[in-house]
Design a protein around this nucleic acid. Sequence first.
DNA 1: TTAAAATGTTAGACTAATCTAATAAAATAA
DNA 2: TTATTTTATTAGATTAGTCTAACATTTTAA
Lengths: 215, 215
Amino acid sequence: MGSLTEENYIKSIYALSGETGEVSFTDLARKLEVKLPTVNSMVKKLAVKKMIVYAPYKGVKLTEKGKKEALSIIRKHRLAELFLVKVMGLGWEEVHDIAEQLEHVDSPRFFDRMDELLNFPKADPHGEPIPDTDGKLPAKKRVALSEVAEGKTVKIIAVSVDEKPFLDLLNIKRIHIGDTITIQKREPFDGSLAILKSGNEIILSQQVTERLFVE
Amino acid sequence: MGSLTEENYIKSIYALSGETGEVSFTDLARKLEVKLPTVNSMVKKLAVKKMIVYAPYKGVKLTEKGKKEALSIIRKHRLAELFLVKVMGLGWEEVHDIAEQLEHVDSPRFFDRMDELLNFPKADPHGEPIPDTDGKLPAKKRVALSEVAEGKTVKIIAVSVDEKPFLDLLNIKRIHIGDTITIQKREPFDGSLAILKSGNEIILSQQVTERLFVE
DNA sequence: TTAAAATGTTAGACTAATCTAATAAAATAA
DNA sequence: TTATTTTATTAGATTAGTCTAACATTTTAA
């Protein structure tokens, strides 16, 4: 395991990896809130440690070792979030910042015990899958609510960001993981949706529906 | 709140403070496992921040502000230890290292919730008192087992160190906080004690009895 | 297809926390 | 009370992580 800073770089690279796995220095710098040269020197260091592959003027990509490290941190983060909600009774909108700190705790016992107490959960409070100890992720086939056709009835299974302002809004609109909803109408002008949840109509903007996953 | 390093200095200075509150640089260096000049420069920095009072060639002493900071860290450490034992089911000999990390978590919500779930406890698993949010410590009048006369019956209320080898030994000897014991005989040669606990004789060395507190 | 814009790199400096080596002051013991 | 030992200080170097300014390469668009 590396330093706290190194862990945060690995985690951010993982989070920004798309199809190809390639991540640009600019995106990484924005995500980590540091300047470009800082990312540059840190990336070189991580390359020496074989956490990433790097060639000048190309993007950066995690190695298998780096991916495993990322998944280990993500496992700790998501277990912590679920633990904070289920066992400690905190709200899903307030646990992210605490989990951000707990994910760096070095103690397999601590997290394995959480896992046990939560009865080996598959997903965190935002519906994101929890990797197992070997870094395996439960496969997730899911679609954004913004892609679902009018008239369909679907179940909300995940949110794609866990930032407080977004979660606060969902709380206000009374949208939660596990809810079953029906798409009533899509407004062509701005892409907003009118949905029906247990008889009540709720209006959601496109910015919101793009970040809600359903099955 | 300062950096992790600063928090550890404050905590160590508090732990080493005796009657006068004065702590020597040498003791501090040994406790923190750094060299003397390191302590010297760090102490100057803490003095600028008004956490300690310092004059060249004199010892160092916490200010009221420093004491409050120390007690806030100790509160978090002890709540975490008790939480790990009572709620998460870990052994009292394995929680210290985890609490050592959790004590630096910045989240009043997290620790206040622990406090609630534990029903506002007065002491941690080692019998050490837990400061309240204002940094007030429940008064403790207690005496080392090594000071108790032969024939007396006393209750074990605390241990003065929470390092694994010591707690492992207590587990083996089946000595726990809350046990009631009777001092049978003190061996004059080495100060070891023969004590009686629910009919069984247990021999404890002076190194052990000095670290057990009773009332 | 070349000029402009975007992206990445290098050089050099800064802060926090640490170290070693040399020196100074205080405490202790001969 | 002086010499020795212990304790504290200063000076200067090192590493991790960050910065700004200047430069280089790649991509995009005119």
